[in-house]
């Protein structure tokens, strides 16, 4: 099963995705693709929080800031992979140099390809992404191009996945497929 979970900040998407991944794995190999490249102490704390939350659940963590396809050979067929999150992977791929802020035009396609390859190799894949598309603001091109790129990834993944779950305050709204888990 391939699943996209998407929602606002603190909507419960990571917790839902972790629980779902554990159940889908049913004791078989289970990988957690951690995508954040920490840039400050706040990031470190966030990573620590996520680590603690999934401790003891049987995940093997693969740290992949960019180039998701590089972990392919580490993932044996038949396994379950959780990618948290599409958003931070895209951020890393789109802006390889955090200081210059110069966008890599091929970042979003490379990101999608890497994720699709993971989905193709694993038995089950669960992707966590963010919904940042419903606010009253006119952004500059820098932010807007990121929003466009993330929407491109979300919409493409939603098309490919069997199940698309929107998380809202810990509640699940299925837009496609579903699971009885």
């Amino acid at each position: 099963m391939k699943v996209l979970t998407c929602g606002g900040s603190k909507s419960g998407k990571s917790a839902f995705a972790e629980e779902l991944a554990v159940r889908l794995a049913a004791g078989k190999a289970l990988y957690y693709v951690a995508t954040m490249i920490p840039r400050d102490e706040e990031d470190e704390r966030r990573i620590e929080k996520h680590r603690a939350a999934r401790a003891g659940k049987g995940f093997r963590t693969l740290e992949v800031g960019r180039g998701a396809e590089n972990v392919l050979q580490l993932i044996e067929p038949g396994s379950t992979v959780l990618v948290d999150s599409v958003t931070s992977l895209l951020l890393n791929e789109l802006y390889p140099d955090a200081h210059s802020g110069k966008a890599d035009e091929n970042g979003k396609t490379r990101c999608l390809n890497g994720l699709m390859q993971i989905a193709g190799r694993a038995e089950n894949a669960v992707f966590v992404s963010d919904f940042i598309f419903s606010d009253a603001a006119r952004y500059g091109e820098f932010t807007e191009s990121f929003r466009r790129a993330l929407a491109y990834l979300n919409n493409s993944l939603a098309g490919e996945c069997d199940t698309v779950a929107e998380l809202c305050a810990g509640n699940v709204i299925y837009h496609k497929g579903g699971t009885t888990l």
Partner: peptide
Amino acid sequence: CEDISSGVVPLGADMRAWR
């Protein structure tokens, strides 16, 4: 119509009026 209802309350009065 685009849904613009779910962000932080905007600082600009015109953006608040827009919402």
